[in-house]
């Protein structure tokens, strides 16, 4: 319960009510148990699981990581335990807390998204789903879904028919404009958009002339991608009427506030959690101080409050 003397950090993302605007991003918080020794899950407003597929996936060949500091390239390939193990063994341990449980789903074909959702519908305590249709590191599906607005709409619509739970579509930034995909997800019935997934990138070892990832290219994340993510959140905010969850390079409270101003209703902390799994609690404390000092009554009032200098915020960079 929130202390009445403390600023209230709660926000809503459509039908989803969060006690603070901080999610842990998919792939950066495991299934919710891995950091339990060192960080309190309930310091998060919610957490998004590692993406689950119908069957367990082994992931890509190593090396899967290349630090390009202060960013990170990864090519994990959605290695995961599969929906069944999660539903049976993990879910009962991570439901019921203050932190909302959002299960990320990633499959090769549309039918499997439906099958995974159908299985998860049997599991009590799940607060929503994030459809990962934007992974740059798998051969089939992945980013290709998000790059095709017609496919995005159909996929979201098919999942929508299977659940009344909250759905967010996680879109790729690796497109000329995020607008079409955002509108397609909205048309399909998504409750929210998660912007953005990783940016396709590459690292080369000049000495050996080899790529530093086995798959040659991978997904770039971490603080350097923040400006790209902010631009996509802003584009998305101006293109749809559903709320946006901002993701990309968030590592401190100022980053969070900036994403809210650019149009996000909540945010996800990703790669920075590898450096500091206890970061969300610290950011939440900093956000309370920010609200006190700046006299902000509710974080929601920040969403989309970007002052563009000419009143109406419709100017989206081409």
């Amino acid at each position: 319960m929130s202390d009445p003397a403390q600023p209230d950090l709660s926000v809503r993302v459509g039908s989803l009510a969060l006690h603070n605007p901080l999610f842990a991003a998919s792939g950066c918080y495991g299934y919710g148990l891995e950091y339990a020794d060192v960080a309190d899950r309930d310091e998060l407003g919610g957490f998004v699981t590692k993406s689950l597929s119908l069957e367990p996936w082994k992931g890509n060949a190593p090396p899967r990581l290349a630090e390009v500091s202060p960013g990170l390239l990864n090519s994990i390939g959605l290695a995961n335990m599969g929906v069944e193990s999660f539903a049976r063994e993990v879910a009962p341990q991570v439901t019921g807390g203050r932190a909302k449980l959002i299960v990320s789903v990633a499959c090769n074909v549309m039918e499997e998204y439906e099958q995974v959702i159908v299985r998860l519908e049997e599991v009590p305590g799940i607060d929503g789903y994030e459809l990962n249709i934007s992974c740059p590191n798998v051969e089939e599906g992945g980013m290709a879904f998000s790059r095709n607005p017609a496919v995005t709409e159909e996929l979201v619509a098919r999942v929508r028919k299977r659940t009344r739970r909250w759905i967010s579509a996680k879109l790729t930034p690796n497109v000329a404009s995020i607008v079409e995909g955002a509108q397609a997800a909205e048309a399909g019935g998504a409750d929210a958009l998660s912007l953005i997934n990783t940016i396709v990138g590459m690292a080369v070892d000049w000495k050996t002339r080899r790529p530093r990832l086995a798959t040659i290219t991978g997904g770039y994340s971490g603080p350097p991608i923040k400006p790209v993510a902010l631009a996509k959140v802003w584009e998305g905010y101006n293109a749809v009427n559903i709320p946006i969850v901002g993701i990309g390079g968030i590592a401190n409270w100022k980053d969070v506030v900036e994403f809210l101003i650019a149009g996000a209703s909540a945010v996800q902390i990703g790669t920075a959690l590898y450096a500091d799994p206890a970061l969300p609690g610290k950011i939440a404390a900093d956000l309370r101080r920010f609200m006190e000092v700046e006299g902000v009554a509710s974080l929601s009032e920040l969403t989309g409050s970007l002052d563009t200098g000419h009143g109406v915020t419709v100017g989206v960079p081409a």
Partner: peptide, 25 residues
């Protein structure tokens, strides 16, 4: 030794090929 992200089984980044059970990694 391997490139490592989280060191806690979260990121799945430090995979190596090990012949052991049902997965190659």
């Amino acid at each position: 030794e391997q490139q490592m992200g989280c060191a806690s089984g979260v990121c799945q980044g430090c995979a190596v090929e090990v012949e052991d059970g049902d997965t190659p990694y």
